[in-house]
């Protein structure tokens, strides 16, 4: 884990120094919230219906910023090649990149969530804590896949297009389930299907993470 930790420290240090990802995430998310809050005159009921989807749109597009930025750093001075030359398992490098992107995204989510609650005038209760495993599960699914696919896409010229093409189809089930789960919590209607669905998200996380961990060595080679 020594190398993975070194990578996380390096990435977080650079992020806190430049704040590039977090700033882009904030601007983008606020824009979404503002547009949907003031442009569409919809009833509160309808708003409650679409709010969970908006929240995840903000998370996921912000996550794209995070991923692109994280791998742009590795591309800039041939650092990706330096990674291929490192005397450590590709899996460790994967864990390092995965953790740093995930931590940055989670930090951002924790900051933006209160803003979201205020914008949409949502009620908080003890139930709201059930969002924590939902946000973790959805975010980890997104970043575990996004990290390996970014590493694939970064070698190509149309990096961002390729990343989107690869990532969206694979990650959309997790995002759709996360939206459903978020809706249940925010709407105060946690039904019997909540835990089975959450389990399904976690199962996909485990599968994506494990596969990526094992495959990352191949990705780093030409």
């Amino acid at each position: 884990m020594r190398a993975a930790i070194a990578i996380v420290k390096k990435d977080l240090r650079m992020e806190f120094r430049s704040k590039e990802s977090i700033l882009a995430m904030w601007i983008f998310s606020l824009l979404i919230f503002v547009i949907f809050n003031f442009t569409f005159e919809v009833s509160r009921l309808v708003m409650l219906e679409i709010a969970p989807g908006l929240l995840w749109v903000a998370f996921v597009f912000s996550g794209m910023f995070g991923l692109n930025h994280s791998f742009a750093l590795e591309k800039e001075n041939g650092n990706l090649r330096a990674m291929a030359l490192m005397p450590v398992d590709g899996g460790q490098i994967y864990v390092g990149k995965f953790l740093s992107v995930t931590l940055i995204m989670l930090m951002f989510e924790a900051l933006i969530f209160p803003v979201f609650i205020i914008f949409y005038d949502l009620q908080l209760s003890l139930q709201t804590f059930k969002l924590i495993p939902v946000l973790l599960g959805g975010t980890i699914g997104f970043t575990s896949l996004g990290t390996i696919l970014s590493a694939v896409a970064v070698h190509t010229r149309n990096q961002q297009i390729l990343l989107s093409l690869l990532l969206w189809p694979l990650v959309s089930p997790i995002i759709i389930w996360s939206v459903t789960l978020t809706g249940m919590v925010l709407g105060g209607e946690i039904t019997a299907s909540f835990y089975p669905l959450l389990t399904r998200v976690v199962a996909f996380d485990v599968i994506f993470f494990t596969l990526s961990y094992m495959l990352f060595d191949f990705i780093l080679e030409d």
């Binding site: 020594r2 190398a3 930790i5 070194a6 420290k9 390096k10 240090r13 650079m14 120094r17 430049s18 750093l73 800039e76 001075n77 041939g78 650092n79 090649r81 330096a82 030359l85 490192m86 005397p87 450590v88």
Partner: peptide, 30 residues
């Protein structure tokens, strides 16, 4: 890989870190 070093036109450095931080990072990796 631990015995090997490559010097080419690629810098293998992070612009947004100091020299010290770059070297500390690589000394941890290696």
């Amino acid at each position: 890989k631990a015995k090997l070093a490559v010097i080419s036109h690629e810098m293998f450095l992070y612009d947004n870190l100091t020299a010290m931080e770059n070297l500390e990072y690589y000394s941890r990796i290696y």
